[in-house]
Structures are given as structure tokens and as C-alpha cells.
Simulated scan of single mutants.
Amino acid sequence: MKSLQLIFSNPRYFAPAWVFTTLNIWFGTWAIYIPTVKENLGINKSDLGIALFCLSLGVFTIFPVASKIINKLGVGKATWFGVILGTITALFPLLATNYYVLMVALFFFGMANGLTDIAMNTLVTEIEKEDAKNFMSAAHGFFSLGGVIVGLGSFLIPIIDNPPLHMAITVGLAFLINLLFYKKYVNITAAPVETEPFSFRLFKPLLLLGIIGFVAFGSEGAIIDWSGLYLKEITLAPEALIGSGFLAFSVAMTLGRFLGDGISERIGSIKVVALGAIIATLGYFLVLSGATFLAIIGFALNGLGFSVIVPELFRIGGNVKGVDSAQGISFIAGSGYSGFLLGPVILGFIAENASLKHSFYTLLGCVLLIMLTTFFLQRKRS
């Protein structure tokens, strides 16, 4: 909790942490209104899927050039630029007058999200280097906090009864807080790094980190999408408890991220990732027991385990020797988002052709792969 105290006591740390919150406020508020947009534009699920793919396409389009933009502008200015772009483009999808305008709006919204995501993680990495303070995990906890704020804000939907206005109020308030604090980070630039020509020796640690990122993000996405159905179909949970798995996962993830920095300071980033994988493994064993309450506890352990893995990956990726922080983080982010998008799809294919329980056996195998990969990372570091 020391990093949480650090964030709330010093604007230098609160400012970038609030950018994390802002990113989830944009995305979460948009997500609430996806059914409304679908109905208003009269599109089917297939069309909606293509439109949502445009958002992902926007994210992936910016990844290859994000590090160049960040290094050109400076990481602080790039983060602030991302906040401005995200605030503006968050309004576009809800103002779309037809399906094709929606696809274009989501593409640009995705680009703004992607740039902000990489810039803010690079920014925290650089501040950690400058100040010798750990708060990456807590910053990701603030991202989770954004989801809580969106959930509370959803109670205003029937009162406001106007999606664009609700979005404008929400992103406007988030932007005003950013406006109050952005000067605390806007002039920060990345410390110069002696970059080396591309070689497999440099690529190898990034590849291992990318594998962990792909699996960890993919597992998170799968639990978010499939936990409710798992409780309903496999554990035969009553209707009132179907959402409990996701709730337990989310609460534990938020708590774990606020605790993660202190643990990382004591045992190091790679050991934290391994510890997270062990906790998530125990969680999957409980989920696969088939008992409702054990499965809910298992989902909570999954959230606790995965909560520390992703922040530590960004921390490690931003400190790979011979690679500048923006490039390392871009690679982790690209690998992770690929997993987040493809993971639920792959799991759905397995569930359709085998069973939903087999999908979760696959997730158990994936987290064991993370443990194995940390072994190779530890050997390389030694």
C-alpha cells in the first residue's frame, strides 16, 4: 500500500496514475453503450463485430509507430497528447450517424487508446527510473479504479437519458482532472539509452516477455468473457451468483495491483510474475473443481495472480538493456493486446468443439507456461 500512499500524497505520481483511470473511463463508458449503438444504427451482431474490430485495428495501427511518436515528442508530451486525442475521439462513436461512420470513429478512438496506453506506461517507467520509486502496479490499479467509476456512473444513465451527453460529461470531468495535473509530467523525457543494433540476443528477453503478455492478457480476456457462462453451465450456479466470478476477479485484481509494488521491491519483478502465476494456478484448480463457491474463490485467486503480472511485464519491458523504454513497452503491449483479442476467440472455439471445462484446462496450461517462461527469464538475468 506504500505506492498507493505515494500516489495520493504527491501530484507527480497522481498525475500519471489518473491517466490510467482516464483510459478505462473512456473505454468503459463506450462499452456500456454498445447495445444502444447497435440498436440505434440497426446493425446485427456480425456487423457490430466488424465495427469493434475497427477499434482493435486502430490500436494495432498505432503500435508500430508509437515509440517513434513518444521519442519525438517526449514521453510527457506524448501522454498529454494521447489524453487530448482520447477525450475528443471518445465522443465520436456515440455521435455516429451510420454504420460506416461508426467504423471510422472506432478506428480513431482505438488509435488514441493505443497511443495513450503505451505513452502512460512508458511515462511511469521513466518516473520510476528517475525517482527510484515503484508505483507501476498501483498505476494499473488506478486503471481498474476507472472501471469502478464507470460502474457507479452507469446509475446516471436513466437520469441523463442521452448517451452522447453522458459520455461528454464523463470524459469532460476526467479531462478536467488531467488538466489540473498534466504539468507535473508534461516535460518529462525518456532517459537516453544506448540502443544496440537488432540481434536475437536482444530480442530473446522481449520474446519471452511477449509470450507471457500474450498468455496473461488472453487469460484475463477469457475470464472476463467466460466466467459467467462457466458458473452457469459447469457449476450450475443460481442466477444471483452468475456475475460473482467476474466481481471476485475484478475486486481481487484491483486489490492486488495496489499491493504489488511493495512485493516487487522486496523480491524483484520476475519473482513477482512467477508468484502471480502460482496464485493463478491455484485459482484454476479451484475453478475446475466444479463447485460454485470454490470456483468463485478460484476466480478471485485468478484476479489476484494476474493483477501483478501485467504491471511487472511493463516494468521489465521498459528496462531491457539495449532497448529504449518506449520500444520495449510497445512490444509488450502489442503482444498483450493480441492475446486479449484472440484469447476469448480461441477459448470459444475449444468450448464449441470440446467443452467449456476444456477451455479452462487450456487456461491452466497457459498459466503453467508463464511459470516456465519466468524460469528462463530468471536464468537469463542471472
Rank of each mutant, 00 (worst) to 15 (best):
A112Q: 13
G268Q: 10
I160R: 09
T254E: 07
P163N: 14
H358M: 15
V345K: 09
L52F: 14
L377W: 11
G245A: 00
F20Y: 08
A132F: 12
L91W: 01
E126K: 11
I309P: 00
L368C: 12
S219C: 09
F142C: 02
L377T: 05
A168H: 10
L123V: 14
I279Q: 15
A300V: 03
I157E: 01
A300Y: 03
A66R: 12
T281N: 03
G153A: 15
K38F: 12
A277Y: 09
S307C: 14
A96P: 03
S199P: 02
I211E: 07
F53A: 08
P16A: 08
V215A: 12
I234E: 05
L259D: 04
K72M: 04
I43N: 01
V308A: 07
V272N: 09
K232N: 02
L85F: 10
Y230S: 04
I177A: 04
P64Q: 14
N353K: 14
S289W: 06
S250R: 06
K271Q: 01
G213C: 03
S227F: 01
G221Y: 00
L372W: 12
L123D: 11
L145V: 04
T122G: 06
T97Q: 15
S269F: 14
F299R: 07
A326L: 03
A78D: 03
L52C: 03
A132V: 08
E220N: 01
D131T: 12
Y230M: 05
V215D: 03
R257H: 09
I346L: 10
G42A: 08
V323L: 07
K68P: 06
S359P: 10
L41C: 14
L23W: 13
F299C: 02
A190F: 00
G365I: 06
G283H: 05
Y284A: 11
I84E: 06
S67L: 11
L179E: 11
R379W: 12
M111Y: 10
N162H: 15
I84H: 02
I169P: 04
I25P: 03
A333I: 13
L55R: 05
N113Q: 08
L57T: 10
V320S: 00
G147W: 07
I127Q: 04
T374Y: 10
D47C: 07
I309E: 02
F314S: 02
S325G: 01
Q378I: 12
L57W: 09
D131N: 15
L48H: 12
I88W: 11
M167A: 06
T254L: 15
G221S: 02
